[in-house]
Amino acid sequence: MLSLLVGALVLSAIYALVGFAWVLLRRTNGILNLATGAQLALGAFIFNQYATSWGLPWPVVVLGTLATVVALGAVTHWLIFRKLAGQPEFALVVATLGLASALKGLSSLTWGTEARVMREPVEGRVVELLDGVSTTLYGIFGLVAALVVFAAAHAFFRYSTTGIRMRAAAENSVLASQGGIAVDWVYVLGWAIALTAAAIAGIMYAYQTTLSFHGVDALGLRGIAPALVGGLTSIKGVIPGALIIGLAETFGVKLFGGSAQDVAAWVVILVVLLIRPQGLFGEKQVERV
């Protein structure tokens, strides 16, 4: 039982990172990004290219992956979504769908479709926490990464001037522009942060399973569940959402077998949509008239 709970917690950390990527883009850039799964996979494949295929030193692998996903975020905004400014949300969603297909094709052409095992930075990946309760080193790293990302995001949006400007642009991009805020750079930063969180989640997941586009892509799509639980715009709402999905998936697989993995998250999504479409933790604004 305790082992299952630890497993659920580790999985929740990954879902939290994926949900964060969904929510950040929705909140900052106003985009429901259906390419999140493909971008998760792309981040992991880029990491694998540097780490396994080219065998680069680990600091270069980390910095190289970070620089590449940030650059991809900037390119995504400038080449696609900047040109769609002012278009209805439907057009943006369709664009993300097209982007997902393009990334899938690119990945397939570049890296093929077979699952890969990534080069590991350390030996001895299993860590015994208690008697009979163990997890992987990557599971622990995923937990730490999720904690760091959420703490950093909280501090960034609450206390930094750039974070405050991102919140301002998210609320009203026209007023932000009239107020001298560089809205395009805010959007680029939104893509960069979201893709970085997505890449970390994709890499952690690939280390705990194998690296396949399909597997990581599916994880990314299921990651909309914690985002939905949080109301799609609440970053803090992602955490309980991720815990719910992590527990549902872990215990679902235990009770009903591997096929429950894909089903659990979507069942939670349906239940949330039916009971409270705005999400369990959707933020309410109090306004004086």
């Binding site: 405050i164 919140r167 301002a168 609320e171 009203n172 026209v174 007023l175 932000a176 604004q285 306004e287």
Partner: peptide, 8 residues
């Protein structure tokens, strides 16, 4: 209209 960022 919308002279301020209301959620800030």
């Amino acid at each position: 209209e919308n002279k301020v960022f209301r959620t800030l």
